[in-house]
């Protein structure tokens, strides 16, 4: 079996782990490598996975751990919808881990790419590095302030459930059974069997990250970044702009299409200038707590 596993190993991604990053375990005998196979023939776009995930983690408005991208293909009357569930790809060679300056994000030996909130400084360099937009920044103010805030968050493949022998929330909620989760190094797991028998594809394989979310029957257009930008419906364009206008406190470098770039950049600067005193007040309060122990 080990010979077969060695053959399966993606040789293009070999030796791409750097520093403290855990070496890739995909196809390495004697190790676990959890991953997901998404059978798009069975996905009906019901968004149950998105809701399950939101509920499992109290994911705030405006950010997602998993989401479903939808496109429409064909011409009337021969039109069909195409779904593309998305989540963290738990890469074997995750660039986010490599870029994190405080070791806040790391790769678990079983393949999960995880985030340590207590170490995260909120610099968002991992978000810039991630090719899959799998990370999001939690808002500074949340209804329940004991939950992580103003740090980066991401999908964890529900490690807390997997360690108890339960499948991730999105997998359990999937009505069509499109999401299949398991140890890809275990040839008896359902996910590994699908990988061995079906033609699968991954998102952005050219990034050298060796992603571990595999898609069966994925449409090439919906997987393409340029297509996703160029061929958006007018309604989606409006929705994006409305979202950017109304989703306060999360502007960063966002630009609204069709409005003056310079004006927006100055507005971004204004928003940031307003934030500076608050941020330093926060530092002052922390120092006070540290010095006076209260």
């Amino acid at each position: 079996m080990s010979e077969q596993l060695k053959e399966n190993k993606n040789t293009h991604s070999e030796h791409r782990h750097y520093g403290i990053q855990t070496p890739g375990t995909s196809g390495v005998a004697g190790t676990k490598r959890y991953g997901m196979v998404i059978d798009l023939r069975k996905c009906i776009g019901c968004m149950a996975c998105v809701v399950a995930d939101k509920t499992e983690y109290d994911v705030p408005l405006g950010v997602w751990r998993t989401w479903v991208k939808v496109s429409e293909k064909g011409e009337y009357p021969d039109v069909r919808k195409i779904f593309m569930p998305r989540l963290c790809n738990h890469c074997d060679y995750p660039v986010c881990v490599r870029h994190c300056p405080t070791q806040a994000t790391y790769k678990h030996q079983d393949g999960f790419v995880l985030q340590r909130y207590n170490r995260c400084i909120g610099c968002r360099t991992c978000m810039v590095a991630c090719p899959y937009n799998a990370r999001h920044f939690l808002p500074a103010k949340r209804t329940n302030m004991s939950l992580p805030h103003a740090v980066v968050d991401k999908c964890t493949f529900c490690i807390h459930r997997v360690k108890q022998g339960v499948s991730p929330a999105c997998v359990q909620a999937c009505v069509g059974g499109a999401r299949i989760f398991g140890d890809l190094n275990d040839p008896n797991s359902e996910a590994a069997k699908l990988l061995a028998t079906e033609r699968v594809t991954v998102l952005k394989p050219e990034m050298g990250t060796n992603p571990q979310v595999y898609y069966i029957m994925a449409d090439k257009d919906i997987m393409d970044e340029v297509h996703s930008y160029k061929h958006r419906s007018e309604q989606l364009k409006e929705e994006f702009n409305d979202f950017k206008k109304n989703h306060l406190g999360m502007q960063h470098g966002d630009l609204i299409e069709g409005e003056g770039t310079t004006k927006q950049i100055f507005e971004n600067l204004g928003t940031f200038a307003e934030e500076i005193p608050h941020k330093f007040l926060e530092i002052g309060k922390a120092l006070k707590r540290l010095v006076f122990n209260r």
Partner: peptide, 22 residues
């Protein structure tokens, strides 16, 4: 064949003005 993305979530540009000024 025509293909259009009709639904997606918006992802933010994570670095903005402070980084450009820096």
């Amino acid at each position: 064949m025509e293909s259009k993305v009709i639904m997606n979530v918006f992802h933010h540009a994570t670095w903005g003005e402070p980084i450009a000024i820096y």
